[in-house]
Structure formats: structure tokens, C-alpha cells
Amino acid sequence: MRAPIGDFANARPVPDCLDQLTAPVAEAVRAWRGTVSADQMLYVDTDPAIADTAVFVEHHGRDLLDASANCVVVAGKRGGETSLAACVVLSSTRVDVNGAVRRQLGARKASFAPMDTATGETGMEYGGITPIGLPAGWPLLVDAAVVDTEWVLIGSGRRRGKLIVPGKTFAELPGAVVLEGLGVTPG
């Protein structure tokens, strides 16, 4: 099957590819009960050596530039306590950590979580973190532009492989809070 975005010859429904996913992502797909069926979520095999956005887009299609999203783990600190959350923004933007994230988490200070914390807490590989399968109870902050995008390319939990899912899916993920202005244009 052809993917709805990008130049991927072999897109497959995610439930047919659970062995390609990390355990938390596979479990989240098995348990999925959203309005978008799990069969509408697609898996595409990709080469981790070309994961850099510019190279990836050049290889798999320029239309991916406006349809790719990043999921990052952030740490909010207040009164000696640290809480983790995930943020999803379009790849053409950056997460407003010191503004929107800090305010939403009620934190005095917010920053990107260290790589070992992000991978250790999610059970996913760095460079492939996805909002599907995050730890229970985590806030998931999603930029409204992601939800408004018809099809979104995002990590699969591993550096190899990506997921292509309808944007509206992100609003239905556990802990999701959709925010205007979470993703800001760099500059």
C-alpha cells in the first residue's frame, strides 16, 4: 500500500507491524480504542542513517516537511519536584519550553529532559520517541497545528521506522492537552 504522504512504497497498518515497535508502543496500539481505528495508523520502514529531517525529506518527499512532527520529553521543576511530560509539535517549529510548557505544567522551570531520562522512562529509542505508548499519567502537550494536519509523520518508538497517523489522533491519546502556540517558529 502507498502512504498518503511521502514517497514510501510499503506502508502497512500498524497492527500488522507490532514486532517492529518497542513494547510500550505495541501495547498502546493493541489497546487503542480511539475514533480513528488502529488500522488507519500506518508504519513505514525507514533507514535510521537518514533520520536527519533535511536528508529524510529529500529522500522521502518534500511534502513531509509540513507533515512531520517531533515528540520531545520535557522536565518541569517546582519546589524540588520534577515531573515529566511529552510535547508534540510540527518539525518546522520548536517547542516553547520556557513559555507554553512551563505555564501548562505549573513549573517554575522547564527544560528538555536528558536523553537517558527520556529513553529510560519511555522505553523508546532516542530519535524515535512517539506520543503513542507514553507512560501512564504523563501529560501530553500537543500543538493545535499537529491536530489540524491531515496526516502526520512521527517516530515509531525506534530510530528505524516511522508512523503516519491522522492528525486528529493526537488529541485522543491518553493525557493529551491540545494547545495553541506550543510550537513556535524558530528565529
Score class of each variant (00 low, 15 high):
A38K: 02
E172C: 04
V165M: 09
I129A: 11
L90F: 07
K109Y: 06
Q40R: 14
A110G: 13
C71D: 08
A67H: 15
L105C: 11
R2T: 09
V72K: 03
G128I: 09
P186W: 09
P4A: 08
P48F: 07
V44P: 01
I50Q: 10
E58S: 13
L18G: 10
V184E: 11
L65W: 15
V89H: 05
A9S: 15
V73L: 04
H59I: 12
S83W: 05
V177F: 10
G79A: 02
W32G: 00
G181P: 03
Y126F: 13
F56V: 11
S37L: 05
A118N: 09
V74R: 08
D19E: 15
D148T: 09
V142R: 07
M1G: 14
L163S: 03
G128N: 07
R33W: 09
L134G: 15
G106D: 00
I132L: 15
G161T: 06
V74K: 14
D148M: 08
T53D: 12
Q40M: 02
E150I: 05
V72W: 05
A107T: 03
T22Q: 14
S83M: 13
A171H: 00
A28S: 12
S91M: 06
V178R: 11
D7C: 10
R103P: 11
V177T: 14
H60L: 06
G155D: 07
T35N: 14
G167R: 00
N70A: 10
V29G: 02
I5L: 12
D143C: 05
V72A: 04
W138R: 10
A176M: 01
V184C: 06
H60Q: 00
P186T: 11
T46E: 02
V88Q: 07
A85Y: 10
Q40G: 04
G120Q: 01
G6W: 04
V89G: 07
A118Q: 14
H59T: 14
A144C: 07
T46W: 03
S92N: 09
N98W: 01
G157C: 07
A23W: 09
T149I: 00
V36L: 00
D66M: 15
S83F: 10
D16I: 03
G6M: 05
P174R: 08
Y43V: 12
P174M: 07
E121S: 15
L140W: 02
V152L: 01
V74Y: 11
I5V: 15
G127T: 08
T53F: 13
K109F: 00
K168C: 10
G123T: 13
D19M: 12
